[in-house]
Amino acid sequence: MEVRTIKVFTTVDNINLHTQVVDMSMTYGQQFGPTYLDGADVTKIKPHNSHEGKTFYVLPNDDTLRVEAFEYYHTTDPSFLGRYMSALNHTKKWKYPQVNGLTSIKWADNNCYLATALLTLQQIELKFNPPALQDAYYRARAGEAANFCALILAYCNKTVGELGDVRETMSYLFQHANLDSCKRVLNVVCKTCGQQQTTLKGVEAVMYMGTLSYEQFKKGVQIPCTCGKQATKYLVQQESPFVMMSAPPAQYELKHGTFTCASEYTGNYQCGHYKHITSKETLYCIDGALLTKSSEYKGPITDVFYKENSYTTTIK
C-alpha cells in the first residue's frame, strides 16, 4: 500500500517557510505537534488534498525554529505562539472599519479597549522592536488589523473576551517599542525636605499616572512627601515624541487643539466601556464603527496623549 502524501510549508514567522512532505494517514499533531492554519487549530486533523502548498504555523520545537521565533517575536515564552494563534482565530472574524481616516474595530468580545489602543497607536510616533509587531502594525494602518490585535493580546497575556485596560495595554506595548531616546527629568520640591531631581528613561519617561493635564504637570502637581507634608512635583525636561497622561476616570474637559487623542471610560472596574476622542479640525468621538463630532467635550476621561518633541522648564 502506497503512502499518500502532500507537500506543505511549516513556519513560526510566515517569513521562513520549511518544506514538509506530510503523510495523509496521520494527523498534523502526530507529525508536527500543535499546528495552526489561519489561526485555526488543526492539530487533530489529517492532511487533505486542499492543504497542498498551504502554510501551517507550528510551535518552535527545534533550534532553527526557536531562533526564527525569537528573532521575529522577541520572546522565548513557549506558550506565546499558541496564544497568538488562538487569538487570531477570533480577531480574523472582527470587522476593521476605516473611521475618520483611522483603522478602528467594530465592537465584539469586549474589544473596546483594543480599538482605543489601536486608534491611539496610529496617532503617536512609535516604532516597535519585534519585527512581528512592526509588520502587523503597518498592515493594521492599511486596514488589516487582525494579526496586530492578536499579537497585542498575546504580548499582554490576554484572551479574547476578557476586559482590558488601555493604560495597561499601552504599557505592555511600550515595553516592546523603541523608547531608548526618551528621557524625563522631574523635580520634587518640599518646604521641609528641599528639592530632589529624578531622571527617568524609556517607558517611565512617557507615562504618568495622577493627572490628565500635561500643562498642569509642567506647572506642578501636589504629591505627598515622605515627611508627610505636601510637596510639588513638576516637569523639568521632556525628550520624547509623545507623552501619555493618565488618571482614574473623572469628568474632564478636553479643549480642541490642546491634545492629540484621549480615552474615555464609562462604567466601573468590573464592567465598563471605552471610547476614543481625537482632536482634528474639530473633536471626534470614535466608538467602534461609530463616529460623532463636537466642538467641545466633557466626560469621564482616563488617558490623554500629547505630541511632544523637546521641553525644558522655565521655572527657576
Rank of each mutant, 00 (worst) to 15 (best):
K275S: 13
M170P: 02
Y265D: 03
G194H: 02
P248H: 11
D165H: 01
V185R: 06
Q98S: 09
N268P: 15
L119M: 08
N157G: 12
N178S: 09
N309Y: 10
K93F: 11
T5F: 11
Q31I: 12
G29Q: 08
E162F: 01
C149L: 08
L291G: 09
T35S: 12
C149A: 09
E281W: 01
F56P: 04
D287M: 03
P241K: 09
G82N: 11
D23Q: 13
L179V: 07
S295Y: 10
K158D: 05
A40W: 14
M24I: 12
K298L: 13
S295I: 09
V185S: 05
Y214R: 03
K127T: 13
T103R: 05
H90L: 13
N100L: 08
K201M: 10
Y28C: 10
C285M: 14
E308N: 09
L121K: 04
G101H: 01
L291V: 15
K191W: 07
E253V: 09
N309H: 15
I15D: 06
Y297P: 00
L173M: 15
D77P: 03
N309K: 12
V12G: 08
T120D: 02
T76E: 09
Y113C: 05
L118T: 06
S181K: 14
G164K: 01
V203A: 12
F32N: 07
E71M: 07
T35A: 09
V8A: 11
L235N: 01
E2W: 08
N268C: 11
A150W: 00
S79M: 14
A177C: 15
L133N: 02
T302I: 01
D287V: 00
E215T: 07
A140I: 13
I6V: 13
E71A: 11
L163D: 01
T27A: 13
Q195T: 14
V189H: 13
F9H: 13
T199S: 08
T116K: 01
G39N: 08
I152N: 06
A250P: 01
Y274C: 02
C193N: 04
L291E: 15
Q31L: 13
H276E: 00
E264T: 06
M207I: 08
K293R: 14
T258I: 07
A262I: 02
T282Y: 11
K298S: 14
N129R: 15
C285T: 11
C182E: 02
G101R: 04
G164S: 05
K201H: 14
C225N: 00
D180V: 07
E239P: 01
S104M: 10
L153E: 05
L118P: 04
Q30W: 08
Q196D: 08
K127C: 09
Y73P: 05
I45P: 06
S86I: 14
E68G: 07
S295E: 15
L291F: 15
L59M: 14
N129A: 10
F56Q: 06
D23T: 10
A87F: 02
V67R: 14
A154H: 03
C285P: 00
Y73F: 10
T226A: 14
V206H: 02
A247G: 08
F9E: 10
W107R: 07
C149Q: 06
G101Y: 04
C227M: 00
K183A: 07
P248I: 04
A262Y: 01
L153A: 02
F259A: 01
V160P: 07
Q197H: 05
Y252L: 08
S240H: 01
V189M: 09
V160H: 06
M24V: 14
L186E: 14
G210R: 03
A40V: 14
K255Q: 12
E144F: 08
R139E: 13
Q175T: 08
T27W: 11
E239Y: 09
L235D: 00
R167E: 03
L102Q: 04
Y214T: 01
L114E: 02
L88R: 03
I45V: 13
E215H: 06
Y269Q: 15
T260F: 06
V221E: 05
T198S: 12
N100Y: 07
T226G: 14
H273R: 03
K106E: 15
G272T: 02
G101D: 06
A108W: 03
K95Y: 10
K316S: 15
N178C: 10
C190I: 02
T199Q: 09
